[in-house]
Design a protein around this nucleic acid. Sequence first.
DNA 1: TAAATTTGTCTATTGATATAGACAACTATA
DNA 2: TATAGTTGTCTATATCAATAGACAAATTTA
Lengths: 249, 249
Amino acid sequence: MIGQQVADSIERRSGVSLWRQIADRILQSIAAGDFIENAALPPEVALAERYGVNRHTVRSAISALVQEGVLRAEQGRGTFVLSRKRLSYPIGARTRFSAGLQGQTSERHIVLLASSIEPASQRVAEGLGLARGAGAMRLETRGEADGRPVSRAASWFDARRFAGIDAAMAETGSITASLARFGIDDYLRQSTVLSARHADAADLADLDLQPGAIVLVTVAVNVTPDGRPIQFSESRFPAERVELKLSAL
Amino acid sequence: MIGQQVADSIERRSGVSLWRQIADRILQSIAAGDFIENAALPPEVALAERYGVNRHTVRSAISALVQEGVLRAEQGRGTFVLSRKRLSYPIGARTRFSAGLQGQTSERHIVLLASSIEPASQRVAEGLGLARGAGAMRLETRGEADGRPVSRAASWFDARRFAGIDAAMAETGSITASLARFGIDDYLRQSTVLSARHADAADLADLDLQPGAIVLVTVAVNVTPDGRPIQFSESRFPAERVELKLSAL
DNA sequence: TAAATTTGTCTATTGATATAGACAACTATA
DNA sequence: TATAGTTGTCTATATCAATAGACAAATTTA
């Protein structure tokens, strides 16, 4: 009889407060398309009954989502869904930030937050095929779509081969365009490893999230068409705003 | 100077308790390989100082992880890491449960928990290319590796074409083998959409998780080599035990 | 053996979380 | 214009989460 998974019960004394769990459920509901844009949420008393909690607890959840800009509450009328669906970020052989989100947003770009040259850690050295401790250029970037942050990444490049890529990145706002300046006309995604965790303090600040949010984490290596690694990166995506669509599989 | 992301601060009044956040950090640390198997965790006072909390709060985090079987505490000696690294579950054109985990575990299989025939919901109908409301056979399964649950899935098939696949699944413990009985010698992963959320009550029970845990969610369609959809599925993976490795990209 | 280190247990106190009930303020509708 | 339905605010109480300090119990080291 049920086509979707139904699991309305809520875990008590779990280390995650009831209002945060309910807020998560409502976000899921919206992302799953249970509410059209501008649709009214069920009234607070109904939600309280559904989740088996007090009305005030539901109100805490709602007020957190109002803070996040997901809902709008109007006294006497109801509570309404503001947010659009999650962005669907494609990951495949030719993963490109801007091209991937084309059609879903009117505007998108990458901001260079910081850059530095540092000795390659073990995993960076492995990913780039460098000697451990060799110079690696690190770029800290944030991806934005329609003014909302949708990704936060650290990327490493061979500092010798790509000297000055930080300036190129700041100027062009595009990894693809920056690499082109170094003679890289095309590159491919060689590997992607995916995990998820709670957002840490840095994620919260960089991605404009509320504490307790979940981030998807990808660790990836990009290579030239002939297989030489050029970029190693770790990216974080806010799970409440982004889903990853694995394509070209 | 730092090769890895460092973010030790903890968020207060976030809806996620400090002990749960610290437990998450320790799990990340272990998964990232900061501790070798059987290595001692830093003493409680040191951890309390690092995270800026009281020793008792650290103890709450540790005791949760002891409950989960990740740590072992010994009075007078220290607290030790038990758990192995996360399993790496490959997702690609030929995603197969057992073959994918080969080499990482000595034993793995799929258990059929339940099955039923139901009218296809909208998303199932879309995924399988059926009319909405047409008969869909649903299989509820759990993947286990070395006796630990590593995945929990609901799969839907065209009930007419695959009548009896539930019995085949119960008998063989393999999707691939069951499909072979219906003349499907090969099948490909057409699409995979990935997201993450907090585990709900059903996940907690089915995957043997502690409340507050995170699950990775994939929604996928498998097709025959000539492109006809045969299986629509939603799978949940415990993020603390599994990472997804996107291959053949 | 003595001292230092580490986990385990207890008491007490404070702040955040959750419940309960009552009523005000606002909106839509019969 | 009532009335019903909804969100907003207030008070009170109970439980969980976190801090603080002290000391016991077990282990390792000097």
